[in-house]
């Protein structure tokens, strides 16, 4: 039996009828055609599908769409504001925080939530903070540096973002 859900994604409200078993990541990618959110392992390990659900980073491959009825979601597509990169995006670009880019959207969403709890982290705290997300290219070093540099910038300026 299908169920109607209303979910706000990156500031836009969507109302759709979905099968209860439809995973949130499929709703985002297939129903809304927002393909920035990736599917990696599909077993809640790799973090490629990480989004913000009411501000918290979660793995959208392990949530049913119906559980998100009424929620506010942010995906990587919502990070850019007024044509300008978010400081995290800017920093990943500047410090080579990516190679193939597959893990990047999830890594960015996780970094937003992490810096919300810990705006001035040590290197070790960043490494633990992104332990929910796998990267198979970079060896993480440049991701850690990118998050560290973005945190510096974000402490200086108020950042406007849907997240």
């Amino acid at each position: 039996m299908k169920k109607e859900v209303t979910i706000n994604v990156n500031g836009t409200s969507y109302t759709e009828e979905v099968e209860p078993r439809l995973l949130l990541v499929h709703f985002i990618r297939e129903n809304l055609e927002l393909t920035g959110t990736h599917i990696g392992c599909d077993t809640s390990h790799c973090g490629a599908c990480t989004i913000l659900l009411n501000g918290d980073s979660v793995k959208s491959c392990t949530i049913f769409t119906v559980q998100a009825d009424g929620a506010e979601i942010a995906t990587v597509e919502g990070m850019m504001q007024d044509g300008k990169y978010h400081p995290l995006q800017e920093s990943f670009k500047e410090y080579h925080g990516l190679q193939c880019g597959f893990c990047t959207p999830g890594m960015l969403m996780r970094a937003i939530d992490f810096l919300k709890h810990n705006p001035d982290p040590t290197e070790e705290e960043i490494r633990w903070g992104i332990s929910s997300n796998l990267c198979r290219c970079t060896g993480y070093n440049n991701i850690v540096i990118a998050i560290e540099k973005a945190a510096e910038k974000m402490r200086e300026v108020e950042v406007e973002t849907v997240a």
Partner: peptide
């Protein structure tokens, strides 16, 4: 337990 994103849920 789990990882930071799992712990949110």
């Amino acid at each position: 337990i789990g990882d930071p994103s799992v712990r949110n849920k």
